[in-house]
Design a binder for these strands. Sequence first.
DNA 1: CACCCATCGCGAACACTGTTCTCTGTAGTG
DNA 2: CACTACAGAGAACAGTGTTCGCGATGGGTG
Lengths: 247, 247
Amino acid sequence: MTAVSSPVPRRERLRQATLDEIKRTAHTQLAELGPAALSLRGVARAMGMAPSALYRYVDSREVLLAELTADGFASLADALEAAFAAADPHDHLGRWLDVARAHRRWALDHAVEYTLIFGPRVPDGGSVDSRVAAELERSVAVLFRCMTEAIGAGLVDTGHIDAGLTPAMYARLRAWAGDHGVAIDPGGMAVCLAAWTQLHGFLSLETFGHLPPALDDPADLFDRQMIDVFAQACRAIAPTGPPAPTT
Amino acid sequence: MTAVSSPVPRRERLRQATLDEIKRTAHTQLAELGPAALSLRGVARAMGMAPSALYRYVDSREVLLAELTADGFASLADALEAAFAAADPHDHLGRWLDVARAHRRWALDHAVEYTLIFGPRVPDGGSVDSRVAAELERSVAVLFRCMTEAIGAGLVDTGHIDAGLTPAMYARLRAWAGDHGVAIDPGGMAVCLAAWTQLHGFLSLETFGHLPPALDDPADLFDRQMIDVFAQACRAIAPTGPPAPTT
DNA sequence: CACCCATCGCGAACACTGTTCTCTGTAGTG
DNA sequence: CACTACAGAGAACAGTGTTCGCGATGGGTG
């Protein structure tokens, strides 16, 4: 009929364009003023349109925030996946470190999104946006792959860790692994969990300004801890010293 | 001159009473509706007074929130200090575990305050409330005491950890220890930092609902990780005898 | 081509918020 | 007693999210 060359009917393309602009300016306001100060009227003002016009594209302020949150999750997941893909697949420690560093850099560069993402869930608590959940899974999956592949390479003695788990823990960790579609030892999942909590704990303290100022730029301390996370997992197999650094 | 029996001049006592009531009702609203929904008008309504009257007691909404935040910090610090004091001073692992559990219980019981406390610092960023900083120090100090006393008892070979630190890290960790008025090895501070980040990472993920639901009630997993934090610190001492600092 | 109607954008309006101002009664002071 | 400091009330201003009804525009169809 009309322009078959463009598969999307132009009308919809324009709509998508302004929706993108809305998101972009909202994102800017967010980064500059913080999540609490994001106002639809402010966005409308910056775009030179009436506040009410925004409602043709956005259901409500909260929905817009949720959308930006999901975008943030996606952006983080992309960064992690890119770091994972770019790393040497045979140097498991190095790859883990690369991914962890990518996570840190992203957190520092996107402090506000980090708040949105890892801050408290929506007060209503009701339905966690399904897209948010999916993107979170994607991020966590990358972190897990670093560990599971190291386990697969025989760097971690998961049996030793299993021994420290009660049957109840064992069962739930196994269930969790099932949720992720991976078939690894519960001990391996325990390692993943420890890695994730430590990574997130450090970054949340740092990005939210709770680390003591005496620790100036804690990049090296972060590296040190992430290496230790890995080394702790490998401890049963390599009793002394950090394993196979080979920068 | 007047009533010497009551050292505070009644007038001020009444003032303090209503101020307490304000804080109490604000705290309730906070717990029920979340930090974003706390409104001065709502507090005034619940107390049966005009919104403008609140300004006799509170400078602004933000200041009130900061006040509640500081109270939250203080409450957490109290809980940690109580747990520390109640524990067997010779069982260092047990005491650490008790303190960590007290931290967790507090976080779960006071999810909203936990947000206020460990969420992003005030957007303005300007002056971190000095009281907030002081109470935070008090909390962290308890966690540190668990570790430093274990180090003092010879359970941790800090020298071994020191060896893994670059001179720059070493210097900054030492400076941090100086800020806390404690004279312990930078390696010990590294242990404290790891313990803190791991504790906070786990709790922030759990209280904010980001842990996978498959892990149902992760109390035992939390214990497991906290024990591992301690064990990791002690690892170097297990195989060979007394600590041998190898700067 | 003309027509039509879905869509877009706008302005006004409502209910709500934080905050300031001015006013009044009253409790404590000399 | 008079007087002052102060708690509280009410109105008002600026700002917010959100809804509703109006006009205009322009792509799809007769």
